[in-house]
């Protein structure tokens, strides 16, 4: 299905347990790949947006490091630009970040090595949950031996995060103003990349169905209730996809 060959094949010799350090290194190597390039370009779009909106370089770096999820960063930027008070901003960002919970919930069972993995390590690495790393992890981790998954993802996430922040800083400093059509093209990258990579990462028919339903229900629920719309889209779209998938797989038996 997936025929992108930009990431190195991961070498995992059978029956031999390699050191954590080796897997950090593999994660590091895998960070130099297409997802990072696209995410960097999307962050260049954000950096120019932020600059136009009058944000400082510190704010851009802090937001990238502390929030890490680009759609949430965009919501926070919008709130800061329109001088919203702390509480309404908090609520807006909270509502736009709900997706991170089911995403993390879906990642952890793949990531952890039974009961051996300490919770604090999962909590730390969970900070890097965002669409790009999530899609990458859901596709790549199942191919790796269990003990390797946490160090691999940690190495990958820290490297991607560092690279992307460096690119945003460079973009913020060097591009006072991008031509308007490039700005538009960069902002457009995020949804297109999300859409296609989500499709590529979905293994079950239920995931593909959920993606399609979410695309249709998203705008409808957004017009109905801009604040709770996303949450409703996830619950209704996801549950419908799950039910259809159940009915279909029962029918086949």
């Amino acid at each position: 299905m997936q025929n992108q060959s930009n990431t190195d094949e991961i070498e995992a010799p059978e029956g031999q347990r390699l050191s954590n350090r080796y897997w950090y290194g593999q994660g590091f190597k895998n960070a130099f790949s297409l997802p990072t390039v696209i995410l960097s370009m999307a962050f260049i779009g954000f950096a120019s947006l932020a600059r136009e909106a009058g944000l400082t370089l510190d704010q851009v770096v802090l937001m990238s490091a502390f929030l890490w999820a680009l759609p949430s960063i965009v919501v926070l930027t919008g709130a800061m630009v329109s001088d919203l008070a702390l509480l309404p901003t908090f609520i807006a960002v909270t509502l736009s970040s709900v997706r991170l919970m089911p995403m993390t919930m879906a990642l952890i069972p793949i990531l952890r090595e039974g009961k051996k993995t300490a919770n604090w390590r999962l909590l730390l690495v969970s900070h890097f949950v965002a669409v790009t790393a999530w899609v990458f992890a859901m596709r790549k981790l199942p191919e790796l031996p269990r003990y390797a998954r946490l160090p691999f993802l940690t190495g990958f996430s820290i490297t991607v995060c560092t690279l992307v922040i460096c690119v945003s800083v460079a973009a913020f400093i060097s591009f006072p103003k991008l031509p308007a059509f490039i700005g538009a093209a960069l902002v457009f990258l995020t949804p297109i990349y999300f859409m296609l990579s989500m499709w590529g990462a979905s293994r079950l028919a239920s995931d593909k169905l959920a993606l399609g339903l979410g695309l249709i229900l998203g705008p409808i629920f957004h017009l109905y209730d801009p604040e709770l719309g996303l949450l409703l889209t996830g619950l209704v779209g996801g549950t419908l996809a799950f039910i259809f998938y159940q009915i279909r797989s029962r029918g086949r038996l």
Binding site: G183, A184, V187, D207, G237, T239, Y245
Partner: peptide
């Protein structure tokens, strides 16, 4: 499987929103 479907639908909702109601240029 259900949680993953919900996460996927949520992201799809964000995708649709970014395409239909974008910000900036």
């Amino acid at each position: 499987i259900w949680v993953r479907a919900v996460a996927t639908a949520l992201i799809a909702g964000i995708i649709a929103r970014l395409i239909l109601f974008p910000s900036g240029e």
